[in-house]
Design a binder for these strands. Structure first.
Lengths: 350, 350
DNA sequence: GCTCAGAATGTAAGCGCTTACATATCACTT
DNA sequence: AAGTGATATGTAAGCGCTTACATTCTGAGC
């Protein structure tokens, strides 16, 4: 961006000194009237506020940041804003932080580890005092860089037991164990899996692991031809379902999907292929988006309170900034929402 | 948030002076090596960069902002991040601006004019140098406040002919005129309308106006009992459709919806009620979300490139910041996507 | 060999604010 | 009447950086 343009950085031109003069006090009192009102006599405070209003003055943040060594800035790193899940997390985080006067800077990695590292660097250079980061699989040294600067951080959206990082989220592996258990209990023994890209995405990896582990407990494994990895879109869900039912080997009686978009796609394709859900095929999603209860049949899925993740992350970081040493936040619970897209498989029902 | 906590504001402790000493140059050269590399001899630049890396130093933004009167901050005001439409707009805006070193501050109004005004105030106090604001119906004086500070701004998501503000968006009224014309051309004469809250929302008001005006050209009016205003959710779409078909008077043969969520809800309810779409009832949406082409029947809707809005807004603001006086951006085109949820009404088809 | 423009670097004065410390004031004690 | 502590306000020293201006150094032109 070229230099030049406006003078005075968007301020009206007044400075603390001008306000002080107009109010007949010192700049120290002006500063206190804004930052520690209780330390200023009410009548004087009034005078200062009036003078400031008259001049259209407010403290210049750069001057304030420089003198107080506080920026009141926090950063949040997410893969993308184009996903409800992260957008609502950020929204809630921001609402909470701004109530305490902290402004949020957003960095999007677009699911790319290098971009993620860059965004974090930029936010640190901007002077963020706290950081929320989605997931923990990042460039080595990323978290060290952050804590090296003395910046508190929290990992969001995942809560892996044994993780060295404070994290706010749910146990992705456990969530998929729960789904697997539900389907196993119904009697399913042949499974398909449609999931989003797993590279640099610890949440997805944990989910797959959770599923595999629980299936293995019953001696069941996913056949490679029944596992599909690709974009988290309805279209890919459709395409994948078709490819799975067309694949050689016994047709799965249950298809587990990495999120609701994939599951909705699978549901649509099953209907298009004339495959009865749940009679011939059970399908599960993840996230419980608004559409999930409106599909036909309604989708069995896992509900996660993303806004709550944002809120808790904000609370944790605020506690850190307040100098407290908050305990690592407890995991959130994800909840299995049983709807009509899962049922007893045809073979055992027969 | 309580004060206290870390010293040195997240920096490593090194300052420009230390880097200068280590590199054997003056702080001026250090500054130039970072901000105007071409003005520094290559070997010296090299030395400075190495010294900085060694000390883990980067320019402190507050000091830089104070001295240069540039914050490299821009703000964007949106109703909520919980809506794809705005989230992708912000995402694109941010991507573009950050390529030019500008960091984006996000303010959410939650569709509340007071919160909007507050967020703008906060962002101005933070020193944003440019502002993108969704819609133009805001507290009186809001735009004056912004330009009073010499901050360039742009209104996004709407492009009302005759608006005094530079704006990047499409003509909401024209878009709904287009929809109305489409349905009129098919032969519809009885219409329903399901729309989102119109208070403080010029986009919605413009759409309704566009629809009404075009219907009026054919002597057609919306009957009050066939107009429903409420939350932009699938659930409200369902509920509204039921209420519309249950209402007294001739049942509409076409229901126009304010966005795709409402339309999808209407579609689902129509199916649940056994009303054939499009044979007995045509339904239109707005936005062309991913789900729109997957519904049964696929939804006729209006496509808007929200990311493009973000990009163009960013370009416009960057041009302003560069000191150029860019021409007001031209309106974007919204495009009617004809799918199978609209058709010739039964009566005239019969 | 000397001059001089132009480039590279240094010097130092702030940018606008906060805050430690000093000072003034006041209401009580003693 | 002087002393005391609490409270309110002022003084002034930076916070870390940028940049106008001054200085030094080059090599081209004569």
């Amino acid at each position: 961006m070229a230099r030049g343009g406006r003078e005075r950085n968007g301020q009206t031109g007044a400075r603390a000194l001008d306000v002080a003069a107009l109010a007949g006090v010192s700049t120290a009192t002006v500063s206190r009237a804004f930052n520690a009102p209780e330390k200023v006599a009410p009548d004087i405070r009034e005078k200062v506020l009036k003078a400031a209003a008259e001049l259209g003055w407010m403290p210049h943040p750069a001057g304030a940041a420089l003198a107080s060594r506080r920026t009141w800035l926090a950063g949040v790193l997410i893969p993308t804003l184009d996903n409800d899940v992260f957008a609502s997390q950020v929204g809630a985080l921001q609402t909470r932080l701004s109530a305490d006067g902290v402004t949020v800077l957003i960095g999007c990695s677009n699911y790319d580890a290098d971009q993620a590292a860059n965004q974090v660097r930029t936010m640190l250079a901007r002077g963020v005092e706290a950081l929320a980061v989605v997931g923990e699989s990042h460039r080595p040294g990323l978290f060290e860089t952050i804590s090296g600067r003395g910046v508190p951080y929290v990992v969001t959206y995942s809560h892996r037991p044994g993780s060295p990082h404070p994290s706010v989220g749910f146990d992705n592996a456990a969530a998929f164990r729960r789904i697997a258990r539900h389907l196993l209990d119904l009697g399913h023994r042949d499974f398909g899996l449609i999931h989003q890209p797993s590279i640099d995405n610890d949440r997805v990896v944990a989910r797959i692991e959770g599923l595999r582990a629980t299936l293995a407990e019953e001696g069941v494994a996913l056949r490679p031809q029944h596992v599909r990895e690709g974009p988290a879109s309805i279209a890919f869900g459709r395409e994948s379902l078709r490819s799975i039912v067309d694949a050689p080997g016994p047709r799965p009686t249950a298809v587990v999907c990495g999120n609701d978009a994939l599951a909705i796609g699978a549901l649509i394709e099953a209907r298009a292929l004339g495959i009865g859900v749940p009679d011939e095929l059970s399908i599960t999603g993840f996230d419980d988006v608004a559409m999930a209860e409106q599909t036909d049949p309604p989708l069995t899925t896992m509900r996660v309170d993303n806004a709550e993740i944002g809120r808790r992350a904000a609370d944790y970081l605020l506690a850190c900034l307040a100098g407290r040493q908050p305990p690592p936040p407890p995991p959130l619970e994800s909840r299995l929402i049983l709807r009509a897209s899962t049922g007893v498989p045809a073979r055992s029902a027969a």
